[in-house]
């Protein structure tokens, strides 16, 4: 067996946790319990987990506006996340950040980012930190197909190649930059090929296939740890929900999402594969399903019960460091 059962169960649990977390976010947003703009990543779980499952807390990831999955895959506490998304005082960022600005520095998660293309330059900095201090830690940035066209991202790719930084660039191509097709917005035929032109190994993978994505990430992570410089991975995936929760998604094709849920659901594909290979048994995964449902239900309840920040204290706290 190429994968240990413990590893596979951990993968399944993490993917399932992201799925249920996102589905509850949608429900709680619709119920008025989550304010603001929320971008769900259900459908894209395999990439976050494949990329992060073997990282340590000293490895750094930088995420996007669609960042819940990356946070969970990197080990962020789902209760702290839910409280943050609900704007509560005991959230991961004390309610100051919200869904688009979740961070957990203790876990090596330096931030979701509401500015498209904001993350990759910052991850270059994290990679430079590791390289300069002589550690074997790496940085990993997540970008979408939309942010692939931002100048900041293109600059960051070249910069990382020039400085040979230990930076793994993950591009989640879900086919849409907001409500615009990736095929329209990318002037090239292949994002993977374009990224490769920056002078780094660049792969395309089917991001709904956990195993293919995991193996590509392993190659890139090993290369970064060994001081061989950056790599890029374009992982094609599916966004099950809108650009933001509440997006009517008029731009999507008829039955497109329903078909994807049947044929391109990374969780189903994972489950089918491990059962077909007899790597895991169904009851083990069913038990995880139940545990995860309970965990997320309790996260929601704790989020609802958590206290709001106190404007008299919290509004002006942490604008600057205090001594």
């Amino acid at each position: 067996m190429p994968y240990q059962p413990e590893f596979l169960l951990r993968v399944y649990r993490t993917m399932k946790t992201i799925r249920i977390f996102e589905e509850r976010c949608i429900k709680e947003f619709e119920g008025g319990n989550i304010p603001g703009f929320v971008h769900a990543s259900n459908g894209q779980e395999a990439i976050a987990v494949a990329a992060c499952i073997d990282l340590t807390y000293k490895d750094i990831i930088g995420s996007t506006h669609r960042g819940h999955g990356h946070c969970i895959a990197k080990g962020c506490d789902v209760i702290g996340m839910m409280k943050e998304i609900m704007g509560k005082a005991t959230g991961l960022c004390k309610g100051k950040g919200g869904s688009m600005h979740i961070a957990d520095f203790d876990k090596g998660m330096i931030g979701a980012n509401a500015i498209v293309g904001g993350g990759p330059p910052l991850c270059n900095g994290a990679a430079l930190g590791a390289k300069t201090r002589g550690t074997k830690d790496i940085a990993m940035s997540f970008s979408g197909d939309g942010s692939a066209n931002q100048g900041t991202v293109l600059e960051a790719l070249n910069f990382a190649a020039v400085l040979k930084l230990p930076h793994v660039f993950i591009f989640e191509n879900n086919g849409y930059g907001e409500g615009t097709s990736a095929n329209y917005a990318l002037g090239c035929d292949s994002l993977a090929e374009r990224n490769g032109a920056f002078g780094m190994p660049s792969e395309y993978v089917d991001g709904t296939d956990f195993f293919a994505t995991y193996e590509a990430c392993q190659r890139a992570i090993q290369r970064a740890r060994q001081g061989e410089g950056p790599s890029s991975i374009e992982a094609e995936t599916v966004r099950f929900d809108g650009h933001f929760i509440g997006d009517p998604q008029l731009y999507r094709g008829k039955n497109e999402i329903a078909d994807a849920k049947v044929n391109r659901d990374c969780l189903t594909l994972f489950r089918n594969r491990v059962l077909a290979e007899s790597w895991l048994q169904a009851p083990d995964m069913d038990a995880i399903d139940e545990e995860v449902e309970l965990l997320i239900a309790s996260a929601v309840q704790e989020g609802l019960n958590a206290p709001d920040p106190d404007p008299a204290i919290d509004l002006m706290a942490d604008v600057y460091c205090s001594y």
């Binding site: 849409y176 907001e178 409500g179 615009t180 097709s181 990736a182 095929n183 329209y184 917005a185 998604q249 008029l250 731009y251 999507r252 094709g253 008829k254 497109e256």
Partner: peptide, 9 residues
């Protein structure tokens, strides 16, 4: 919105 997409322009 909807440029290059299968759904509504």
């Amino acid at each position: 919105g909807g440029a290059g997409c299968a759904g509504q322009d």
